[in-house]
Amino acid sequence: MLQRELRKLVIPFLGPSLALYLVIGLWPNLEAFYWALTEYDGLAPIQTYVGLENFSTMLADRRWWGAVNNTIYFAIGTIITLLPISLLFAILIMSVRRGREFFKTTIYIPSILSVVIVAFLWVFLLDSTIGLFNPALKALGLTEPLKQLLGVNSLNWLGHPKLAKPTIVLIQLWQGLGFYTLLFLAGLAKIPGELLDAARIDGAAGWGLFRHITWPLLFPTTQTVLLLLIINGVQIFTLVYALSGGGISPLTQVMATYIYRTAFTDRLFGYATALSVFLMAVVMALTIVSRELTKREAIEM
């Protein structure tokens, strides 16, 4: 009865969304596999089929592999900084007695800001002329020691080849920390309090408590965080784009920005799509691999 009545809604409710989704959401994805085999400059009336030529061009394109390299650097750099630090911050927030709400609130502020805003903020903070950072270092007499420590001849944070990539990783850390800390906090909140109390009565404390109780129970959260970091890391675009105003130097060029430039600046639409097919394959492979790896470890626990 109810079902028969409700079925009246199937066409009017499902129809529009399914139509929109199929045409705008899904179909272009399928079309992409054809586009990847063609050459098109957006001007000519003809889209030429070129077979696998785009992929062989890709293999020989050193700018692309430079971008792939940088992307890997950013993804790994973000994982090895964000994952442990956000976990640490979550535990610290749980452990403090006062100001828990305050810390939760403020720590998440960078994450709600637009990436564009975060990028501007850091461009200006780090600028040697109008920024806060370098004048402060100079006033404290830290400029020279820092230069020696880092082995650079200038504290050109976003331009020096030794500094540009780590700086971007740190900016990502600053922006992402709140988000991932809150994820870990949610994971920690799921751990039953009795379990921790029981473990404490049994004499577990500090590192032992973490190693044997918290960490294994937090594992599903860690797995999620890792997956998010990988997927988001490989697809990084806006931060790199906004930090450089579109004139991205090869020092920080990443896969997504290179695909965008190939398509909309160089107007090699077919080639750009071939590159994005490659990007998709990478994302899928990494997703599967990380799922498999963490699954095995979870069983060991």
Partner: peptide
């Protein structure tokens, strides 16, 4: 100057 490569050009 520090921002010669990669800095903000207006700056």
């Amino acid at each position: 100057i520090d921002g010669f490569v990669g800095g903000d050009f207006a700056a």
